[in-house]
Amino acid sequence: MKVKDVLIRDISAVFEDETIENFVRMCSMQSLSGLPVVDENMVVVGYISENDVINAAIPSYFSLLQSVSFLPDTHQLVQRLQKIKNDEVSKYMNTPAVTVKEDDTLIHVADLIIRRRLKSVPVVDDQGRLVGVVTRMSVLKGAMEKGV
């Protein structure tokens, strides 16, 4: 089974110069956990997830502690979010993005999702342009219905 068999042909994406506020707005309205970052030719240049924003908004040592129960107060988190909301997406995106191609095997993308703890992987063509995404659920559904 190939990536193209479970591909969701959605090219929702953000641009590098768009703000974190825009990104959060888009994700919340579309119920998404992250978005590919593209340039003006639709080439995928990165990926930004809700985790990247959360990590940017909490002090770095909390990620080491793996718990936010040490946060003295949530006001600090809110303050930091206010501070970064006008920052550009490029500041917090992961680059280069993990991408797959339509003809890659499902087992390959499943391996990436598990190993890299990804919720969604952009699918690109030979020029690196976004053609869609595969999500954990689309892989699970595909594997369950048709096998890997």
Binding site: R9, Q30, S31, G132
Partner: peptide
């Protein structure tokens, strides 16, 4: 809007979607 997009994808999985959402 989300139902519309989901239905569009279910009925026509070959259509590429690129929608922007508003309030």
């Amino acid at each position: 809007g989300r139902i519309l997009e989901e239905e569009l994808r279910r009925l026509h999985p070959r259509i590429t979607t690129n929608f922007v959402y508003t309030s």
